[in-house]
């Protein structure tokens, strides 16, 4: 059942809107004044200030490839990340490790490893699926470029961003 709502009874002055307008003007000028005197906390002024030093450990930035402390590239080109990548940002071209290499038993290495940062959604599935602890999402978030091509990170760029990661499992080392 519809219930009639009692409208508030306004005095003549209130009906002229003038007190409300005056009140509104006071509100806006207070904000103006607080801003002028620097009392208002505004948003971070990004390029000059940033969160870089306060990013949490689990922050998901750009995916990168890492080497371990022996300088071995950890990726074995199993292509699991390529298959799981939802936006299909990863392209891997596997190659064979030469027989006389110290790591010959690993058999494969990525001859080409490209991540298209224009497609990457920073979901971290590649890191999760990697059986070799080779791909990690690091803290770089400001990935920009002037062309689409420049946004495709090749192997060199990926290792540059990833660097060396220590404390990983060394499953290809000789058994002790």
């Amino acid at each position: 059942m519809a219930r009639p709502v009692q409208r508030p009874k306004l005095s003549l002055l209130e009906r002229s809107y003038l007190p409300a307008i005056f009140g509104g003007l006071l509100v806006t000028i207070r904000h103006f004044k607080d801003m002028i005197f620097g009392k208002t906390q505004v948003t971070m002024e990004y390029p000059e200030q940033n969160w870089n030093d306060d990013l949490p450990d689990w922050y998901r930035g750009a995916p990168t490839l890492v080497k371990d402390e022996h300088g071995r590239e950890r990726c074995v080109a199993c292509q699991l990340c390529e298959f799981i990548c939802p936006p299909r940002a990863i392209t891997i071209k596997p190659g064979e490790i030469s027989k006389d290499s110290k790591w010959a038993k690993v058999e494969k290495f990525p001859e080409q490893f490209e991540i298209d940062m224009a497609r990457c959604i920073y979901c971290g599935l590649c890191q999760e699926v990697c059986p070799e602890q080779a791909i990690f999402l690091r803290k770089d978030y400001s990935i920009t470029g002037e062309t689409r091509e420049s946004l495709v990170h090749d192997k060199k760029k990926l290792y540059e961003l990833g660097g060396v990661m220590t404390g990983l499992v060394h499953k290809w080392d000789e058994k002790k």
């Binding site: 904000h31 103006f32 801003m35 002028i36 505004v42 948003t43």
Partner: peptide
């Protein structure tokens, strides 16, 4: 600038 200040923003800077 005034609109920014009234709305607690920074405005063109």
């Amino acid at each position: 600038k005034v609109s920014a200040f009234i709305q607690d923003r920074v405005g063109p800077n």
